[in-house]
């Protein structure tokens, strides 16, 4: 597995933890333990995303601008398998 794939896996893992926790919180909005968990994985997700975006291209459109280029449109899309 390439470094890029490893880092994307990290992004996906932490992002998924956020998604799953947010569904739980929707029906348990006062659960302190879940809130703490959400905050923790959110920080990990943001860190992994930032590292990925710096090295390999934007995940979020708000980060799509790189130097003098609109990199959002030129970097690979996620359904392509990297060779």
């Amino acid at each position: 597995m390439s470094e890029q794939e490893k880092l994307m896996n990290k992004v996906q893992m932490y992002h998924f933890a956020m998604v799953d926790a947010s569904l739980f919180l929707d029906t348990h909005p006062n659960d302190k333990e879940a809130l703490k968990f959400f905050k923790r994985v959110k920080e990990m997700c943001e860190k992994a995303m930032e590292e990925y975006q710096q090295k390999y291209g934007s995940i979020n459109i708000k980060d799509g601008e790189k130097d003098t280029k609109w990199e959002w449109a030129t970097s690979a899309f996620p359904w392509e398998v990297q060779q």
Binding site: M8, Q12, H15, S75, P78, W79
Partner: peptide, 15 residues
């Protein structure tokens, strides 16, 4: 809605 350039879970099919 806004789009994130990532799949929710990896899809990597060889064949």
């Amino acid at each position: 809605f806004s789009y994130q350039k990532q799949l929710q879970y990896p899809v990597k099919i060889k064949n």
